[in-house]
């Protein structure tokens, strides 16, 4: 078969660009922040140079980072990755001392340690229609899952929920991979007024839903799971447990799933939402509250 000769100039230009891109990135130090966007006062998007992880990650994976010698090890789900640029996107909420310090870092700054991808990847497959529910910063880890299911040929209906308009994040990116997006806010400042479950139930009553994914605050996932259980819709939830090493060693992230102790970092982070003991999870998330408050006062007082 005869081949069309390549356009030489175009190829050269392409190659030059590639080389430049490569050179540009090789100037970056490991785990350098290349881009930052503030979604709200408490929520920040960071794009970080981590080429190996950008290449290896799949939807559902997370990383653990430590900003400096004093920092905690913080688990964060990977929201997006760009293999060519060698970057991953993280969405961080100010919760404790370390996450607040991370939110205050800027492009050009480097994170000291970052390891991943960790956890089991989401089981992406062709299921039919997917109902994806995201609450607050949970929208970030939901994004690659929505993208994955859409690319696998599913119809994807996404419900995004938050307290108010400015806490609805990554809406454009979510829209790109959803057939339909429903927005819910507690205060009605954007989309419909109401909780995630209100929006989700409308969709369930309207059309056949084959599977559901819910990611957000534990309470939000708990009630979404209760709802989908009523309708017998298989549902996955991604747990945001307390972690230290994140590599299956410490057991801080243990959760009760179907009466068994599971480790979120190794067995999860996604589990059958109908089997998760959310009340125990909520209790365990508060396990270091007093110590964290003290650390906070130490750092800010």
């Amino acid at each position: 078969m005869a081949r069309v000769p390549p356009d030489f100039t175009k190829t050269l230009l392409f190659l030059t660009c590639q080389i430049r891109l490569k050179n540009k990135n090789s100037d970056l130090t490991m785990y350098q922040i290349v881009e930052k966007e503030s979604f709200s006062e408490k929520v920040v998007k960071l794009v970080v140079h981590a080429p190996r992880i950008a290449r290896a990650r799949k939807p559902g994976h997370f990383i653990i980072l430590r900003i400096d010698e004093q920092g905690e090890r913080i688990p964060l789900t990977i929201a997006q990755a760009d293999k060519n640029a060698g970057t991953i996107t993280l969405v961080v909420q100010k919760v404790g001392v370390s996450s607040t310090r991370l939110c205050e870092m800027n492009p050009g700054d480097s994170i000291l340690d970052l390891v991943g991808p960790l956890g089991k990847a989401t089981h992406i497959h062709q299921a039919g229609t997917i109902l994806a529910c995201g609450g607050g910063v949970g929208i970030a880890p939901l994004l690659p899952i929505v993208e994955g299911f859409k690319k696998a040929g599913n119809r994807v209906v996404t419900v995004l929920a938050a307290r108010s308009k400015d806490l609805i994040i990554l809406e454009d990116e979510i829209r790109q991979w959803s057939d339909e997006v429903i927005i819910m806010t507690d205060d009605g400042s954007y989309g419909n007024k109401g909780l995630v479950t209100t929006g989700a139930e409308e969709v369930i009553n309207r059309e056949q839903i084959d599977e559901c994914v819910a990611i957000g605050p534990a309470v939000m996932m708990k009630f979404t799971a209760l709802l989908t259980k009523k309708y017998n819709i298989p549902t996955q939830a991604s747990l945001n447990a307390v972690m230290v090493d994140g590599t299956g060693m410490c057991g801080a992230c243990r959760a009760n799933v179907g009466g068994e102790t599971k480790f979120t970092c190794i067995d999860g982070p996604e589990f059958d939402a109908h089997k998760i003991d959310f009340d125990e999870l909520i209790q365990r998330l508060g396990g270091y509250m007093a110590e964290e408050k003290e650390a906070w006062e130490q750092a800010n007082g």
Partner: peptide, 25 residues
């Protein structure tokens, strides 16, 4: 070594109960 063993007795997932791996780490 990986996952710490627990005894699987009632109440073991209460806060304040942790593995030696977590405590020492």
């Amino acid at each position: 070594a990986g996952l710490p063993r627990f005894m699987n007795i009632p109440g073991e997932n209460y806060n304040g109960i942790l593995s030696s791996n977590e405590y020492l780490t």
